[in-house]
Nucleic acid binder design. Structure first.
Lengths: 353, 353
DNA sequence: CTGTTAGCGCTTTCAA
DNA sequence: TTGAAAGCGCTAACAG
């Protein structure tokens, strides 16, 4: 290739990388030859020489909800692409084989940095991704030792719950995320604090666990339907479960919001097209990804260890059609409220089934 | 590293790659040292030397619907990961900058093969991905010159339309995909053929174009609502548009399926949780991805050019609650059917607005 | 401003 | 069975 243009390989390299350092004459000749031969520098050689690969690993949790994560990924990809980086997908699988794989890629120098959406730094045996010293950013859920981009999820789920209480609901149902999930922990802790602050004896809360999928909402709805005294307000830890819940209770003749109010969390697009439209907390999904990617680029620019930082983005609570004041009990019907005698044991976070 | 174990670098390489060719004694010593030092071979050097990178590029169309594509991607990733390959995301953006980028990656030897979900081989100026001679597989939509994994989408959308006709619908509405989209072309062509075969003068079809998003369904519904004589059966080119359509006409007081029947295409999960549940054609999304990935691995195994092949997977038409026989016109109401005088101009594929 | 050269870390002949 | 050495394609340091 260099021979073809009648120059040295170094000149070719310079003409491509630092056009200013080459004479007008040669530069033109090189570029013309490059064009004519359709030459593209070999990435592996460049990577080997320069120690960087222009690839960012994105670690996605095992059963990531596409409607939520796809938009975060779009934010990441848009920003990284514009800077000339490519994204390698690291979907974690069940057996942990993939987890080992991504740690190895990282150690093999195949990657310039990692963005973690799974809430924890991948580990393989003794080795952690952190050992590589490469820049790492976590999004949506803080992974220890990394820079985190988070939302005010605790505050906003409390806002959603307050919305229900404000409408007059006193008997609540919380459809939780999977046990141990970082977001679930934060949201439940925030809710517990809210309930502790509310006038004791006034609000009752029951809780069941879900899987963040539609099916989790279905299961929660079945538990709900089986209750003798049904709660009138339901807080779901994400929109899929809220929608699965609504669909299932409706099939059993329970009206939303007339008989039960439901709020979700995430603000996926489907929340505007289910029946009824879902009152929910909208997370800035694209911006979460874009912000994380920008931080990654910064970290790559100025290398060296830096103390983990936290960036907080704001969610937005949106009231739609799935919430309303509780129905007044008709004469002869059991009241939704707990009987006066039950007033003392206010906070009753039973785990159902 | 080799010095540490007291052997040559060649021995280390052999111990890792071909354990059989190294004496028991040395092998153990090498492996132990590898473990102790946490050594991982440098990927770039290996790639440079071997000419392969263990990376597969997946080209995703610009506005890919997450509920559909995420599952295809999962199929791809699962199969490729198990074989030790990683996936690089090539989301195409608006300006075509990304298209150039992916072509360059391919030419730069950064990639061992490409899976194309966008229906066309990316091109940058004069250069096409095909020029690299690397294995290429297209999924969901055939890209010229590649091995394609497709479904019987024409047959199954016809099945969906026949379902409506079989229920008694004679005035149909087709909500198309974006103009020029490969899937849209195939489906519309199949529908046109069906209508040509049906007794002429009996079925009327009008058509409007959509964008494969919820918003496309909303727009189509507005066009529908504006019609003086509303069709009674609606075929949508994908589920998102069908759901957007249903929600919008319902808001205007049109009942589904009592006043209008709706069928979708794809079989995304939402189709089971919208109101009413959506009659639709379910595509084997995971299997599409997995099959394509397996073919890719085969192609990599036995290199050299091969004549493009086509693999067809079967869709499944599922009847749910969004379709029913057309309502009998009440006395004094205009019939849904075209008046007898209109019988001759049977197929009326008007494009609406 | 341009050419020569060394070497990134690995695998793979080729000899021993 | 093992070691020595060449070289994958590039870029950066050094001469000229």
């Amino acid at each position: 290739m260099a021979r073809e243009a009648g120059v040295s390989t170094a000149t070719v390299s310079r003409a491509l990388a630092a056009p200013a350092s080459v004479s007008e004459e040669l530069r033109r000749r090189v570029l013309e030859t490059v064009e004519r031969l359709g030459y593209t520098p070999n990435a592996a050689a460049r990577n080997l020489r320069g120690g960087r690969s222009q690839m960012i690993l994105v670690v996605v949790p095992r059963r990531a909800n596409p409607p939520f994560f796809a938009e975060v990924l779009r934010g990441i990809d848009t920003v990284l692409s514009a800077a000339g980086y490519s994204v390698i997908m690291g979907n974690l699988d069940q057996e942990g084989a993939k987890e080992r794989h991504v740690v190895e890629m990282m150690a093999a120098g195949h990657i310039d940095g990692a963005i973690i959406l799974s809430g924890k730094v991948p580990v393989s045996g003794e080795r952690s991704m952190l050992d590589t010293g490469l820049p790492m950013v976590s999004i949506c859920a803080a992974a220890e030792g990394t820079h985190a981009i988070l939302t005010d999820e605790g505050e906003t789920i409390v806002e959603a719950a307050r919305h229900l209480v404000g409408l007059g609901h006193r008997d609540l149902f919380y459809v939780a995320g999977p046990d141990g999930n970082a977001n679930e922990r934060i949201r439940w802790a925030a809710l517990q604090q809210l309930f502790a602050e509310l006038a004791l004896g006034d609000v009752r809360v029951r809780r069941t666990e879900g899987n963040f999928q539609f099916s989790g909402g279905v299961t929660a709805a079945e538990a709900f339907l089986a209750l003798a005294e049904r709660p009138t307000g339901v807080v779901c830890c994400n929109d899929e479960m809220a929608i699965g819940f609504m669909k299932t209770v409706q099939a059993a003749g329970v009206r939303v919001p007339a008989d039960v109010s439901v709020v979700g969390f995430d603000g996926i697009e489907f929340a505007d097209f289910c029946e009824p439209t879902l009152t929910t907390v909208c997370q800035p999904r694209y911006e979460l990804g874009a912000t994380g990617a920008r931080l990654m680029l910064d970290l790559i620019k100025k290398p060296g260890p830096s103390a983990p930082t936290t960036t907080l983005l704001a969610n937005e609570f949106k009231v739609r059609d799935s919430t309303a004041p509780p129905r007044q009990p008709r004469p002869g019907e059991a009241p939704a409220k707990a009987a006066p005698g039950d007033a003392k044991p206010a906070l009753v976070p039973l785990t159902i089934s």
